[in-house]
Simulated scan of single mutants.
Amino acid sequence: MQDINNEPTYGPTAARILMTATRLFMQRGYSAVSINDIVQAADVTKPTLYYHFSDKEELFVLVAIHMLADMHGTMRRVIAEQSDTRGRLIALAKVLLNEPNGDTRMMRHQAREHLSPERQRRLADAFRRYMVEPLRQVMQQGLDNGELTRHSAYDLAMLFLGLMEGFQRQMAPPVAPEHGEMYQAISTDRFSAETLVDLFLYGTAVR
């Protein structure tokens, strides 16, 4: 059975396996989780897991797609609550910056390291559908309304995502004790979602 976004839905056993895999992948990362870890934590047998899922790569892809789909739903909801481009971008910035530990970004990074090209393409397609497309539509509406100019809606969407993900990385970078002063995290007290959106829309030049 599949939902309206053409992603499968699951019965209780498959859903439990998927939830367990999600927790383990997020806690340990792809390479540190084995099929044995998943079946033991989910309290199922290997044949049961392989009845529902082809391999660990497939599980990882499905975990990432479900996370992207959840993010997509939240993005759609906050977009609908705003009446102009700046308001929509601020609402989206808050969603993206509050994502726990950059979950979807981390999953995409691990996919590039560990997944086959075919699985990487599938995940990239889901990323474009679930995260880029809502942003592209916001940018296109802004262009149509005269609130934005100069660039394509797709380019603006990718630039905005890059700004949000770059800032999110800097909010809590890995810091070695001896380099603490050199690599200080950026404070959200100085850079709110509103500030970042205004930097995106207006830049830093004096207006």
Rank of each mutant, 00 (worst) to 15 (best):
A176W: 03
A15I: 12
P100Q: 08
R76V: 06
S31H: 15
L49M: 14
V206E: 13
T48W: 13
S192F: 07
V39A: 10
R190I: 03
R121E: 14
L135R: 00
E181N: 13
P173E: 09
I38P: 13
M26Q: 15
Q168T: 03
Q168N: 06
R169S: 03
G73E: 14
Y183F: 14
Q2T: 10
I90A: 03
M19T: 10
E58S: 11
A205H: 03
A91M: 09
R122F: 07
Y154E: 15
E99T: 12
R129F: 12
Q2P: 01
N101A: 12
D84C: 07
F53P: 04
D70R: 14
L196I: 02
G29L: 02
E7L: 12
G166P: 10
R76G: 06
A32I: 00
V78P: 08
R112L: 12
G87K: 00
R128P: 05
Q120L: 09
M139W: 05
S83R: 07
G73I: 06
R136G: 06
Q40E: 13
H66T: 09
G87N: 06
M131Q: 14
V39R: 08
I79A: 02
A64P: 03
P177M: 08
R150C: 14
R207F: 10
R128H: 14
D84F: 05
Y51N: 11
V206I: 06
Q140W: 01
P177E: 08
H109D: 15
D84Y: 02
I65E: 03
F160I: 05
Y10E: 00
A193T: 05
T45Y: 00
I65D: 02
V78F: 00
L92K: 05
E58I: 00
E194Q: 11
K46C: 05
K46P: 01
G180K: 15
R105Q: 15
N145S: 10
Q141W: 04
